[in-house]
Amino acid sequence: MKNQMLTLVLALVLIPFCWAAHTQDTPVAIRGATILTGAGDVIEAGTLVFVGGKIVALGADVSPPDGADVIEAEGLYATPGFIDAYSHVGLGFSSLWHRESLMAASRRIADFLDNPGDSNWLRSGVTTTYVSPGGQNLVGGLGVIVKLTGSIVRDTAAVSASFGETALNAFEAPTTRQGMIAILRQTLIRAQEDALEGEDGRTFAQVLTGELPFRVLANTPDDILTALRLAEEFDLNLILDSAAGGHEVAEAIAKANVPVVVGPTIIGIGSGGPYETFALTPSNAASLHRSGVRIALSTAGFGAGRSVVMEAVLAKAHGLSEAAALGAVTSDAAAILGIGDRLGTLAAGMDADIVLWEGHPISTWGETKRVIVDGETVFER
């Protein structure tokens, strides 16, 4: 009797694991969808096959393999999971910035994440985001890329800095933008001379070699041009964040071949947002794109409320093409974040992060029907 009970208990314990292994090893085919690959290609009435969390095949002439689980998707669109290229998901207010020093380059945001998963954004079709420190520090630390199921894609993805008034107002000194930039230049020079010790020294060394991108939150045209000059002087792998006034200096940004993470589009002036965003226009993304700047979109959000899907819809409504808007939350966003080898495109070998939509995803009537992350359905309507 005891042996029978033990066998029953073991069976009950092991069945879920056997089923999980079975489902991961079983091919899944999405059949009949209009596939928007994220790289500009459109496959009508296509089939996409994934196994074990990776895409293995897609095309109009692909058939579901024998034994595959088939998801019928006729009349639906299939896209890569959307990417919000700048957010604060999983961070509490007390974790946003380092209050003891203006410079906190080696502060790892991954160490402060509190449940980076977000079901609201997942339901909207967003599966991945770059989580940045706040803008209160001149150099705020190392941002992290996470999937919104909670897994970490890259724990040290970039060094995030801020040239705006938020950083100026957070500390007693410096009191001017010139003073702030002088401190940063001196730090970079010391790092060049191997005179900067400790973790910050090692972090800045990676910035100077280009191994770590240097992301600068800059909104006024003057701050943007300052970031471009520093990038040229020190050969930095620069990414501009927000860039509300980017449309006014778009040609300079394009000439420097620097990508921009645009957004959020809707920011209140005065008590609702920084005055330095006065140049913000909803056509900013379109203006930058027309000038030849590679762009991604973001919300700078904490997870609740508007997702980056709405940023793409707004950008399209104000002049950005449908294809460019889709790229700004898929393939271009992934390329800017340095994860284009895994995410942002539907292609063989890529992560099976897939969203099925009723209605075009870059439209006010687009609605998610199923969201898949790493080959597992995490939301179904």
Rank of each mutant, 00 (worst) to 15 (best):
residue 178 Q to D: 14
residue 161 A to N: 02
residue 147 K to A: 03
residue 150 G to T: 07
residue 175 T to M: 04
residue 176 T to R: 14
residue 148 L to Y: 10
residue 171 F to Y: 12
residue 167 A to N: 12
residue 150 G to K: 08
residue 148 L to N: 08
residue 166 T to E: 11
residue 165 E to D: 13
residue 176 T to C: 13
residue 150 G to H: 07
residue 161 A to Q: 01
residue 150 G to Y: 13
residue 158 A to G: 15
residue 163 F to G: 00
residue 154 R to I: 04
residue 154 R to M: 09
residue 161 A to P: 09
residue 162 S to W: 04
residue 151 S to P: 03
residue 167 A to H: 12
residue 172 E to F: 02
residue 175 T to Y: 10
residue 162 S to F: 05
residue 168 L to I: 10
residue 171 F to D: 00
residue 166 T to S: 09
residue 156 T to L: 03
residue 162 S to P: 05
residue 164 G to P: 14
residue 165 E to G: 06
residue 160 S to R: 04
residue 179 G to K: 06
residue 150 G to F: 06
residue 177 R to N: 03
residue 149 T to S: 13
residue 157 A to D: 11
residue 147 K to M: 07
residue 158 A to R: 12
residue 152 I to C: 09
residue 163 F to K: 00
residue 177 R to S: 12
residue 160 S to D: 04
residue 173 A to L: 08
residue 160 S to Q: 05
residue 174 P to S: 11
residue 158 A to Q: 15
residue 149 T to Q: 09
residue 167 A to V: 11
residue 151 S to M: 02
residue 157 A to H: 13
residue 168 L to P: 07
residue 161 A to L: 02
residue 152 I to G: 06
residue 177 R to K: 08
residue 170 A to C: 03
residue 168 L to A: 04
residue 167 A to L: 03
residue 169 N to A: 11
residue 178 Q to F: 12
residue 170 A to M: 08
residue 159 V to M: 14
residue 167 A to K: 05
residue 173 A to F: 10
residue 177 R to G: 00
residue 160 S to T: 14
residue 173 A to R: 06
residue 172 E to L: 15
residue 169 N to D: 13
residue 150 G to E: 10
residue 147 K to D: 02
residue 155 D to C: 00
residue 173 A to W: 04
residue 152 I to P: 10
residue 152 I to Y: 06
residue 171 F to K: 00
residue 152 I to E: 09
residue 179 G to N: 13
residue 158 A to T: 13
residue 157 A to C: 12
residue 167 A to C: 07
residue 161 A to S: 06
residue 165 E to N: 14
residue 166 T to G: 04
residue 159 V to T: 13
residue 178 Q to N: 11
residue 152 I to W: 07
residue 168 L to V: 09
